[in-house]
């Protein structure tokens, strides 16, 4: 790192930092705005006065949301869903990706096509619902993660990563008499932390953000995840929903509470990424590839 930086590089660095400060601000400000709204008085929010700082500071919105048993229960469900779903999804997807990344595997191409086909064609909601009902998953918690546990997109990313690992590693292990499974768990996986962290994140976020599955399959209040709760909160306050429903219009959720709910529903999942970032460091392969 002692190489002298030239002027053009300095200029590049400066512009690059400036660029990211601007980009960062544009993505951060809406959240600051949401935070400000959630701490503002409803009157100030309604008239659109709240920008980056709360007006008429209050914390009642958070008290309200955090006391709501429906919110708390769905938060619990979402955390459980994200953990169980991610664990299962990551495991299943990884053990599927590994064989498909081995060029010598006979029928590899056909297996891959079989997987990719399902990314582009689907039987649609009606037969799927019928299936879920026949295997007893409708209105059951597992319906939220079992069908999504095998994700072809994620599988392809892992497979792609495995293919990029140097061949030498595996060969030396094989010469030592290790089985394929042994190679996967003791050599390949430890070198794959960046991609595993990425896919774990993808799974966790997908499970966290999914409301459609629960909207279709879950009517039992006990199993509803947070995003469905949030969706219901926002939809039931939308003008389209209230158009012909005076009784609902009399009980709409104040906008400040909506803002607080959005934030509270997003915060837990936001904390996952910084935690996983440490696996995204360069040089995981250093030392493993010798000669």
């Amino acid at each position: 790192m002692t190489v002298k930086t030239s002027f053009s590089e300095k200029l590049f660095n400066f512009c690059n930092y400036l660029f990211f400060i601007l980009v960062g601000l544009t993505t951060l400000l809406p959240f600051v705005n949401l935070i400000a709204k959630s701490f503002s008085s409803e009157a100030a929010v309604i008239s659109g006065k709240v920008n980056l700082l709360p007006i008429g500071f209050q914390t009642g919105t958070y008290m309200y949301v955090l006391k709501d048993s429906m919110f708390l229960n769905s938060l619990k469900n979402s955390i459980l869903l994200a953990i169980v779903g991610t664990a299962l999804g990551l495991f299943l997807t990884t053990i599927t990706a590994y064989p498909l990344s081995r060029v010598q595997l006979r029928g590899r191409k056909w297996f891959l096509l079989m997987f990719i086909f399902t990314m582009l064609f689907s039987g649609g909601l009606i037969p799927t619902y019928l299936l879920m009902q026949n295997i007893g998953l409708v209105n059951q918690f597992p319906v939220l993660f079992l069908p999504a546990a095998i994700n072809v997109f994620n599988m392809l990313i892992i497979k792609n990563y495995f293919e990029g690992l140097p061949d030498g590693l595996e060969e030396s292990a094989k010469l030592d008499g290790a089985s394929n499974i042994r190679v996967l768990f003791s050599i390949v996986l430890p070198l794959s932390l960046p991609v595993l962290a990425t896919i774990a994140l993808f799974f966790a976020v997908a499970f966290w953000n999914d409301y459609f599955t629960s909207m279709i399959y879950i009517t039992n209040q006990d199993f509803k995840p947070l995003q469905l709760y949030l969706k219901e909160l926002l939809v039931s306050s939308s003008s389209e929903f209230l158009k012909d429903n005076v009784d609902a219009a009399l009980n709409t959720t104040p906008q400040s509470i909506q803002a607080a709910s959005i934030l509270l529903a997003t915060l837990p999942i936001l904390m996952v990424y910084p935690f996983l970032q440490k696996y995204f460091v360069k040089g995981v392969l250093v030392g493993s590839v010798k000669g």
Binding site: Y98, F121, G123, P127, T128, N180
Partner: peptide, 23 residues
């Protein structure tokens, strides 16, 4: 053993993706 690793994924695929494909 590689094929064995594929089995669970394919079972999930057949059940949740291919079984409703008649739709």
């Amino acid at each position: 053993d590689l094929y064995a690793l594929l089995v669970p994924g394919i079972l999930f695929l057949l059940l949740f993706k291919y079984a409703p494909m008649y739709g």
